[in-house]
Simulated scan of single mutants.
Amino acid sequence: MPRVLLAALLTLAVVAGCADRPAQADGKLNVVTAFYPLQFLSERIGGDTVTVTNLTKPGAEPHDVELNPRQVADVADAGLAVYLNGFQPAVDTAVAQEAKDRAFDVASVVELLPYTEKSEEPEGGSRDPHVWLDPVRFSTIAGALGEKMAAADPANAAAYRAKAQELQTQLQSLNQEYAKSLASCQRHELVTSHSAFNYLATRYGLTQVGITGISPEAEPSPQRLAAVAEQARETGTTTIFFETLVSPKVAETIAREVGAKTAVLDPLEGLTDTSSDYFTVMRANLAALTEALGCTS
């Protein structure tokens, strides 16, 4: 075969490959998500007509995730890349370089709260990324994601929109459960090892007291530990919360200091139990909160 003809055929193959990027060989929309809550939304809205690849492995802490070459290639091949800009720098870079025209930044459709927790963490003035812990904001993201999927795969647009609406109804019901259960509580201070719960606290009239800042790996200073312990005593805190993906030692230190117990409050950054999902974890969190705060519905 003449070289000119061969080169022309190869060029056509590349163009055809790019044109088919939004779907795999089986015809499903190829969706790449940055971390678990966005994987959850994509799978629930996409159903059987999408294939979802999550860039943060189960049980991994997503804040400082690094991508290997295979994962960068997954982003490049995505029909839709779903991420939260500013949360995971490696993902932000991969999306900007490989999928800028096929990306959905969930922060573009909801207002992000400023990070206000008083600690020594360098990014203390940044935006708080943990928006999925507010079911109302998460519902807004679900609706927008349904529209993004509909635009990326018009043949299944009606199904995406219907499933997004169904999911939004479920999230609104979850919001009502939280609002009712947390409406009357003896205590309103939420002492946590990781400052991940400001969206939840703001939505339901609670006050977050974080031992560490936005990053769960940050080490609190002795001054910060002393300040949190003093506040816990003043407010009669009975429970110090820790999360599933990091060590409970900091929470245990405060608990011993003030005579409180510890319990899990899951920020839902990643699942450790594959039999659970967003709704089961959020309801487990609600049960833990109502007990710790002395709530009566």
Results as ranks from 00 to 15, higher is better:
residue 77 D to C: 10
residue 60 A to E: 13
residue 102 R to F: 05
residue 53 T to S: 15
residue 37 P to M: 06
residue 84 L to F: 05
residue 45 I to L: 00
residue 123 E to S: 14
residue 66 E to C: 04
residue 89 P to E: 07
residue 121 E to Q: 13
residue 98 E to G: 04
residue 37 P to S: 06
residue 61 E to W: 02
residue 67 L to K: 11
residue 54 N to T: 08
residue 119 S to E: 02
residue 66 E to R: 13
residue 95 V to I: 14
residue 68 N to V: 12
residue 128 D to R: 06
residue 116 T to C: 11
residue 82 V to M: 12
residue 87 F to W: 03
residue 36 Y to L: 09
residue 45 I to R: 10
residue 98 E to T: 09
residue 117 E to L: 12
residue 75 V to G: 08
residue 75 V to W: 01
residue 93 T to H: 14
residue 79 G to K: 03
residue 90 A to E: 08
residue 69 P to V: 00
residue 61 E to D: 13
residue 115 Y to V: 12
residue 77 D to W: 01
residue 82 V to A: 08
residue 47 G to C: 12
residue 61 E to G: 10
residue 96 A to L: 05
residue 96 A to Q: 13
residue 120 E to S: 08
residue 81 A to S: 12
residue 99 A to S: 14
residue 46 G to C: 01
residue 80 L to I: 01
residue 92 D to H: 11
residue 40 F to D: 15
residue 113 L to D: 12
residue 90 A to H: 04
residue 50 V to P: 04
residue 46 G to L: 03
residue 101 D to H: 15
residue 54 N to R: 03
residue 68 N to A: 08
residue 114 P to C: 00
residue 47 G to P: 09
residue 91 V to W: 11
residue 67 L to E: 12
residue 55 L to R: 12
residue 85 N to C: 08
residue 40 F to G: 02
residue 42 S to Y: 07
residue 58 P to L: 01
residue 33 T to D: 05
residue 107 A to P: 03
residue 44 R to I: 06
residue 123 E to P: 01
residue 94 A to N: 07
residue 110 V to E: 00
residue 37 P to T: 01
residue 67 L to Q: 00
residue 83 Y to W: 11
residue 33 T to L: 04
residue 121 E to C: 13
residue 37 P to R: 08
residue 48 D to S: 15
residue 114 P to G: 07
residue 113 L to N: 09
residue 53 T to V: 13
residue 89 P to G: 03
residue 78 A to D: 06
residue 112 L to R: 14
residue 46 G to Y: 04
residue 92 D to T: 05
residue 114 P to A: 07
residue 75 V to P: 04
residue 62 P to G: 07
residue 87 F to V: 10
residue 40 F to H: 12
residue 50 V to H: 07
residue 57 K to N: 08
residue 87 F to N: 10
residue 102 R to T: 07
residue 76 A to L: 03
residue 59 G to I: 09
residue 72 V to L: 13
residue 44 R to D: 13
residue 79 G to H: 09
residue 109 V to I: 13
residue 120 E to A: 15
residue 124 G to E: 02
residue 45 I to M: 11
residue 121 E to W: 15
residue 67 L to F: 07
residue 97 Q to F: 01
residue 40 F to A: 03
residue 83 Y to M: 09
residue 87 F to Q: 09
residue 112 L to S: 04
residue 105 D to V: 05
residue 62 P to D: 06
residue 50 V to I: 00
residue 53 T to G: 14
residue 116 T to R: 14
residue 91 V to G: 02
residue 130 H to I: 01
residue 111 E to K: 15
residue 117 E to I: 14
residue 78 A to M: 02
residue 58 P to H: 07
residue 34 A to W: 05
residue 93 T to I: 13
residue 124 G to D: 08
residue 62 P to Q: 10
residue 67 L to H: 06
residue 96 A to K: 15
residue 76 A to Y: 01
residue 95 V to K: 01
residue 59 G to S: 06
residue 32 V to Q: 02
residue 51 T to N: 15
residue 84 L to E: 14
residue 108 S to V: 00
residue 110 V to D: 02
residue 117 E to R: 14
residue 73 A to I: 02
residue 68 N to F: 08
residue 39 Q to T: 15
residue 56 T to F: 02
residue 57 K to Y: 02
residue 39 Q to W: 12
residue 38 L to C: 12
residue 38 L to T: 12
